[in-house]
Each structure stands twice: as structure tokens, then as C-alpha cells.
Amino acid sequence: MIRQSWWKLLSFVLLVYTCSYGFLVEVPSPPGVPLKETIRNLFFHVPMWIAMMICFGVSVVYAVKYLRRHDPVYDIYSTEFARTGTLLGILGLITGMIWANYQWGKPWSGDPKQNGTAIALLIYFAYFVLKGSLQDEEKQSRIGAVYNVFAFFMLFPTIWILPRLTESLHPGGQGSEGNPGLNPKDTTNSMRTVMYPAFIGWTLLSVWITTLRIRVQIIHQKQLANE
């Protein structure tokens, strides 16, 4: 049987709910806002970013743990959470480009949030390049962990702070609205009943996938140790 199944089931239930009721829930269509039905992407595009940030957050916690007590298991945790986070970031970027193609006219408009995310993801790509380029495993883990801390502290300026300093095409990013990403005026309470379960569900699914990779890596390490 699968391990610790309650939260995995919770993720399944929440995502089935998201992917069914998410299409049926009434969405507002205020005049002047061209989002219309595409606001439903709130249940699919935005959770990618939430889950990505949580994965990167967990990753940096384990990187610091690794630096404190050189346990290779912490390094496995840190690397695999960063991997899932990067995947979610790519998915978020692609889904965002599809959405932008119909909303802003073209897939890439150089929106500060798009550029910032691209930079953040490139920094995380460099994390894997760096780790892959080192032969010695201990060095790989240690330099990887140090770089991970740097990457995490670049993530927040690039996706949260810099987009706020200029105007963004994202909802809530015009003039002094101040929050490129979510505009509270576009969301209603009934949408929130799907939005929060979607955030939790997608996050749990990404954690599930990550734990699978971690377990495979740990088995792999054990096999190497036995040989």
C-alpha cells in the first residue's frame, strides 16, 4: 500500500473538485475587464506559482539544514524539491504565455512579471548546471546548497519586488493598484471556494511527486552503499 495516504487522497479530492467545479462555478464578468471566462485559469495557472514557491521554499530549508549537518539525505530533499519547483515554474510560464496570447495579444510582451520569472527560472537552471558540472559528490551537495540559498533570495526580488516597481499587464498591476498577480476586484467569494482548494490540491500533488523522486534517490543511494 502507498505510504501516508491521507494527504495524497486529499490532493486527489481537492483536484477533482477543482477540475470539475472550477469549470462550473459562476465567474464575474465586470464591464471593462476583458478576462471573461479565462479568469478560470486562476484555478490552474496561479496554483503553479504557489506550488513553485512552496517547493523552492522547502528546498532552501533543506539546503540550510544540509549546510548545518552534512547529511546527504537533506541534499536529496533539497535537490528534488528544487527540481519540482522548476518544473512547476516552466508549466506556469507556458500556461501564462497561452493565456497572454489571448489576453494581451501576444505570448511574450516583456511584462515585468514575465521577465522576472524568466530570470528566476534561469537562476534555478544554473543550479542544476552547477551541480551537474561537479564530479565530487560532497562538493556537489555543498556548493549546490550554498547556491540554492542564493537562488531563493533572488527569486523573491525577481517575482515579487521588481514587478511592483513598474506597471504590469497582470491584473492589479496598473498604476497604483500595486499587486500584479491578483486583483481582488476580479475574484468573488464563490471563486475563492475553488481557488484555495486549488492552491492546496496542486501543492500537495507536487509534494507527492517530489516525495516519489526523493524515495527513488534514497533507494538508489542505499544500493550504491551496498555495492
Binding site: 500500500m1 502507498i2 505510504r3 495524497k8 500533488l205 507527492w208 511527486i209 516519489l212 524515495r215 527513488v216 533507494i219
Partner: peptide, 11 residues
Amino acid sequence: VFNLDRKISKL
């Protein structure tokens, strides 16, 4: 994902 989890548990 469920199947993967089961297989890894067996391993």
C-alpha cells in the same frame, strides 16, 4: 502517480 508510489513502496 499512485502506481509509482506503490512500486516504490515495494522497492
